[in-house]
Computed example of a mutant assay.
Amino acid sequence: MDTLLSLRVFAEVAEHKNFSAVAERLGLSPAMTSKHVKHVEARVGARLLNRNSRNVSLTEAGAQYLLTIRPLLDGLAEAEAQLTSDSLSPRGTLRMSMPAWMSTPAFSHILTAYHQQNPHVMFDVDLSGRKINMVEEGIDLALRVAFKLDEGLIARKLAEVTFQLVAAPAFLDRFGRPDTPEDLINAPLLAYSRVAADGRLKFGGENGLDLRLRPILVSSDENILHQAAVAGMGFAMLPNWSAQNDVKDGRLETVLPGIAWPKLHIQAIYPDRSYLPAKVRSFLDFLAGPDGFSAFLT
């Protein structure tokens, strides 16, 4: 059998977790698709996929093998693409993971502007906020602000995000409007679980602020924290662009606006590949360009 084709079939099945869909995508029969995967398993002497009538998943050996061969397949595809007339035209599905608070009209305009320039790229966006395995799940790109970089991944800084403490006017009428940071001690906090699940707001180094608030709602979904703040439940630390319309329209107020609240970088995270697919490289360049985050954050 064609071993190179077998490797490509295995990678497709591993990332899409569906033999039938890959067979149709590659113009193969389901039986031949299965034979290609078995051919790879026979060559390496290990089971790479768990499969039953409903599910397909990578074994531990399969995940490691995919991590090894994916850069090789992508590099070969990139080299082949450079010899074709459409090598500069990104295409295919760009699978992306990003925080729920980026789900705004402004970011939708970025996606629209990119798609108008690159009509052959389709987006598949995950907003679950959960921890992902980029290789096993076939994620091309993740946008994150606070994260721990896993082995085998690289990051590119795209933009700086300023956060601000906000609360609803009706809540502040009841609680009182803080005059100093110390007025926030033990105040009710709507806490992002991956940063301040214990209610502690610490930033600015040794001479910065270290405050302990009282968490009353903890979640990894920024949208529920945002909506609870608008509803008047407590204080929330939100990105400027997420809160700015509610502040402008009077649904939220900035709290202690003179404080230098945290500034963090939006980073693009992707597998460490020698050759990035054109769809990923072009979208990264777009995000870093004048029509990307620089327009988004104004």
Rank of each mutant, 00 (worst) to 15 (best):
F235Y: 07
H226F: 13
T33S: 14
M96W: 04
R212D: 12
T162S: 14
L28A: 11
M134L: 15
A268W: 06
R95V: 05
G75A: 14
P90A: 08
R144I: 04
F203G: 03
T68Y: 07
R156H: 12
P277G: 00
Q267S: 14
T3D: 00
E60A: 13
Q227N: 12
L225H: 04
K263Y: 00
S85Q: 09
Q116R: 01
L201R: 02
I132R: 15
T298A: 15
F203S: 05
V247K: 10
L276I: 11
G232K: 14
G208A: 09
S29D: 10
P99E: 11
A106N: 10
T59L: 05
G75K: 01
G199P: 01
Q267R: 09
R144K: 15
S294M: 11
V161I: 14
P119T: 03
L7I: 01
A187Y: 00
A191I: 02
H36S: 13
H265S: 15
T3V: 10
A46M: 09
R214A: 02
L153G: 12
P239C: 09
L252A: 12
I132P: 04
A167Q: 06
M32I: 15
G27N: 11
E206D: 03
S220N: 07
D198Q: 14
L58T: 03
H120V: 02
L225D: 00
I139P: 05
S193W: 02
R144C: 08
E136C: 08
R273I: 02
A106G: 13
S219Y: 01
G62I: 03
I216M: 06
F10E: 01
P290D: 14
L217G: 08
L211Q: 09
R144F: 07
T3C: 02
L28W: 04
L158N: 08
D179S: 13
F175E: 07
L209D: 12
Y192K: 05
S87D: 05
V125R: 02
D285W: 06
L49D: 09
N55H: 09
V161P: 02
T104H: 15
A77P: 07
E78C: 05
S87I: 00
K17S: 13
K248L: 14
L153S: 11
D183V: 10
F235D: 06
S193A: 15
I216S: 05
F147M: 10
M122V: 09
Q267V: 02
A77S: 10
A197C: 03
R95P: 08
H115L: 00
F286N: 03
I154D: 10
A197Q: 10
G45M: 11
V135I: 15
L276H: 06
G138T: 06
I154S: 14
L26S: 04
I259Q: 13
P169C: 09
A63R: 15
G204D: 09
R174Q: 13
V247Q: 07
G45P: 11
V166T: 14
S242C: 12
D285T: 11
L209F: 12
V9G: 01
M102I: 03
N245M: 08
P271Y: 06
I216D: 04
D74N: 12
